[in-house]
């Protein structure tokens, strides 16, 4: 049985889709079977980031509505044969995303994949709550600024109340992925400090991804950054995050700073 991960944030544009693709590719590089599911009905992006936009025939809504089989909608990545994409619909109404439909699709994906990564839309509406509903693990993508942190806090509250795990009285495993971290701005004090974000959200840190032109460059060529330029700083951060997801204990380094911060932050108890 595979693990279902939701990549969520509340606030838009913080890097959920970038992270879903990069982590998906990083996990698949090890030979594990990975599917990345786009829940952003009407604003799909994942197909572009993964360079599959011209190969989309059927999508999640088609599968939910019974117009296509799951196997017909899944797109295999051209570079990694264990990486798949289940695209969202760009044209259909998001009301077609039904709770029962999502449940059936996720249950089927869990049977044949090691990792099911759900790229959540922004906000706290239906699309976002359905994306998190069946997750085993949540990755909360946050930028080091107040509004993003507050929205993430709100999302963590929903993860602890509105998901299937929460309703069954279980605790969802949650990880913080701090993205678009800019060492120069941190130096000037224009950004929240890593410690402050961790203190406010009090969930364990999965990684810190630096703000980098490599991310834009990767998306322009339609490739997850972990595939297009694996030696780049953001790619390394995502590879490390993927290893931590598998349960490895690796120190987290703050970009631009020498000190590692293993004992201090990663060892912090999950809330």
């Amino acid at each position: 049985m595979g693990k279902v991960i939701v990549v969520t944030s509340g606030k838009g544009g913080v890097g959920k889709t970038t992270s879903s693709a990069a982590l998906g590719a990083a996990l698949a590089r090890n030979g594990e079977k990975v599917v990345v599911v786009d829940f952003d009905v009407g604003l799909r992006n994942l197909d572009l980031i993964m360079g599959a936009e011209r190969r989309v025939v059927y999508d999640l809504i088609n599968v939910i509505q019974g117009e296509a089989k799951l196997a017909q909608a899944l797109i295999r990545d051209k570079r990694l044969e264990t990486l798949y994409l289940l695209p969202a619909s760009q044209t259909r109404d998001k009301d077609n995303l039904t709770a029962e439909g999502v449940e059936t699709v996720i249950a089927a994906l869990k049977q044949s994949f090691d990792w099911v990564i759900c790229d959540s839309p922004a906000g706290i509406e239906r699309g976002a709550t359905l994306a998190m509903r069946h997750a085993d693990v949540a990755i909360v993508v946050t930028n080091p600024e107040v509004s993003s942190v507050r929205d993430s806090d709100r999302i963590i509250g929903l993860l602890d109340s509105k998901t299937l795990m929460a309703e069954q009285g279980e605790r969802m495993e949650k990880h913080l992925l701090l993205t678009r971290y800019d060492p120069a701005r941190a130096e000037r004090g224009d950004m929240l400090k890593v410690d402050d974000v961790l203190e406010i959200l009090s969930i364990p840190l999965l990684g810190i991804v630096p703000e980098s032109m490599d991310v834009l460059r990767a998306s322009n060529v339609g490739s997850p950054v972990t595939l297009s330029d694996e030696r780049s700083a953001p790619a390394i951060a995502y590879f490390d995050a993927a290893r931590r997801l598998r349960g490895e204990l690796l120190p987290v380094t703050i970009p631009g700073e020498k000190r590692g911060f293993f004992g201090k932050l990663f060892g912090r108890k999950a809330a």
């Binding site: 706290i124 929205d151 806090d153 963590i156 509250g157 929903l158 602890d160």
Partner: peptide, 8 residues
């Protein structure tokens, strides 16, 4: 025994 989150 847990943090009270934004929106709660």
């Amino acid at each position: 025994t847990e943090p009270v989150r934004s929106g709660q």
